[in-house]
Design a protein around this nucleic acid. Structure first.
Length: 483
RNA sequence: GGGCCGUUAGCUCAGCUGGCAGAGCAGCAGACUCUUAAUCUGCGGGUCGCAGGUUCGAUGCCUGCACGGCUCACCA
């Protein structure tokens, strides 16, 4: 039916798809928000026809543009019988341009009285139902364009996402950070504990990995003297998919020479509270019914204290790996360990205890400081305690949103850590860090003391847009093909 | 990967104990020059996710598969 209408228009020489441009002078909210200045003035608007209320020789329709909807009043007096009759053949979902005068109807609805209506594109497929909208999650993710047309809060979410990202860029740019682009493809995917995607270069006849982190390249930039750098972009991790994980996700990593992890904590607080202000107009936001306060200062707690605070044992009293293993057995932690108990160090067991006792209780933004050295191969040790490092993770609503360190810059120690990771890989841990020899060479050239941090952008967008699932903040989430 | 749930018209959903496939919106034809989920009259619309099985008869029961959602495990 719609195809026939299109063919008829084309036969009449009125092919909508032949239109190349349209002058749009205003958007819907501009007119609605400043009605007094627009009343009686001519405007030219464009958008999708979302409804059509035909009352004979006049009609009302709702035109939806980027910002929202505005009512269009059309009648035969102003358009002429022929043009009005043609307009009545247009369908819901069609893209039209309307030139006309701004006025208010007797019922008080701000509207545009059409003088000229141009069909700019024909919708051959009907829109979902106007009242119930599009609900099926599968269709919403697979055909996001329909979701955006029908569910305006989705548009709001993605506009907020942009605001959050630009607030972060602005904040760092003001502090003279240099934005760089590090490789997505490389032979070594290191800098995090995750399985990579692999692909193949025909030109080089080489297996390559998609990056799982940007860390090792950004630190090379620090060695080169850039002093403050960041890379915001996609990382790819070949892991499970759920409401918090998508195989490709957006991460910012930033590095600042002559800074440490305390400086990173301040930066983290500032970036997040600034993003909340820019996107939500306040530092306090509601997430899934819980109020979250992003204003600095956030709570700071060592990992050992966190475990103790939330009902776990006091690890400061544990001196040896052997003692820790006994404790793990006593507490029934063995199920939560990633390795066999006999291969676990005190650090592994402390981390497991943290995840079991403390993590889910960290609702308000909290920095957990001082991570075990064994699980932090790129981090500088704490002065006076080689088993612990100057590392923190930031938690909100029980979820990790940031990970930061005083960066390890001693090439000899770094070499040892990579060697240790290689052993773990041989023991079957396919998420152990890949050995990057050139990175160690770069440290031999000399890297200044540096603080670095990674922040999961999708997750902070989730908190600031009250999104339940990561799929709600990624326009086109990873899906299996339908057939 | 395990468990639970879902898949019926373009969309949102009903469909009883197994007995001719339903509604609203959308669409089509008509009426109406201030409607806004417009209203009124009439009409058309289906591979009941796919493949088997049981049965006289399956949208419904059984098995397998596909896709999706939630959840547990893993990870970030």
């Amino acid at each position: 039916m719609r195809r026939e209408k299109l063919a008829r228009l084309q036969a009449e020489g009125k092919d909508p798809f032949a239109v190349v441009t349209y002058k749009q002078t205003e958007h819907s909210t501009q007119i609605k928000e400043a009605f007094e200045t627009y009343e009686g003035k001519d405007v030219s608007i464009a958008g999708r026809m979302m409804s059509f209320r035909d009352i004979g020789k006049a009609s009302f329709s709702d035109l939806q543009d980027r910002d929202g909807r505005i009512q269009v009043y059309a009648n035969a007096d102003h358009l002429g019988l022929e043009d009005y009759a043609r307009f009545k053949t247009y369908d819901m979902g069609d893209i039209i341009g309307v030139e006309g005068k701004v006025f208010k109807t007797r019922r008080g609805e701000i509207s545009v009285e059409a003088r000229k209506i141009t069909l700019l594109a024909k919708a051959l497929e009907p829109l979902p139902e106007k009242f119930h909208g599009l609900k099926d999650p599968e269709t919403r993710y697979r055909r996001r364009y329909l979701d955006l047309v029908m569910n305006r809060e989705v548009m709001d979410t993605f506009r907020k996402r942009t605001k959050i990202i630009s607030s972060i860029r602005d904040y760092l740019d003001e502090r003279e950070y240099i934005e760089v682009e590090t490789p997505v493809l490389s032979t070594i995917a290191s800098g995090a504990a995750a399985r990579p995607f692999t692909t193949k270069s025909n030109a080089l006849n080489l297996h390559l990995h998609l990056r799982i982190a940007t860390e090792l390249y950004l630190k090379r930039c620090i060695v080169g003297g850039m002093e403050r750098v960041y890379d915001m972009g996609k990382n790819f991790r070949n892991e499970g998919i759920d409401i918090r994980h998508n195989p490709e996700f957006t991460m910012i990593e930033l590095y600042q020479a002559y800074a440490d992890y305390h400086d990173m904590m301040e930066l983290c607080e500032n970036l997040l509270s600034n993003a909340a202000m820019k996107a939500c107009g306040a530092t306090k936001v509601s997430y899934q019914g819980t109020e979250l306060e992003f204003a600095a200062p956030w709570r700071r707690l060592t990992m050992i204290d966190a475990v103790k605070t939330y009902g776990g044992p006091d690890f400061s009293a544990v001196k040896t790996d052997e003692e820790a293993r006994e404790l793990a057995t006593k507490l029934g932690l063995t199920e939560d360990l990633k390795k066999k108990l006999k291969d676990c160090t005190k650090g592994d067991i402390l981390n497991a205890a943290f995840e079991k006792f403390a993590e889910k209780n960290l609702i308000q933004p909290t920095f957990i400081m001082d991570y075990p050295t064994d699980i932090s191969p790129l981090t500088k040790q704490k002065p006076g305690d080689p088993t612990m490092t100057e590392r923190f993770e930031a938690f909100v609503y029980g979820r990790e949103i940031a990970n930061a360190y005083s960066e390890l810059n001693d090439p000899i120690v770094q070499l040892d850590r990579f060697t240790q990771q290689a052993k773990e890989r041989e023991l079957g841990d396919d998420e152990a860090y890949m050995f990057d020899e050139d990175f160690v060479s770069s440290l031999e050239v000399g890297m200044p003391p540096t603080g670095g941090m990674g922040i999961g952008i999708d997750r902070i967008v989730m908190f600031l847009t009250d999104a339940y699932s990561i799929r709600d903040v990624i326009l086109f989430p990873t899906m299996k093909p339908q057939e």
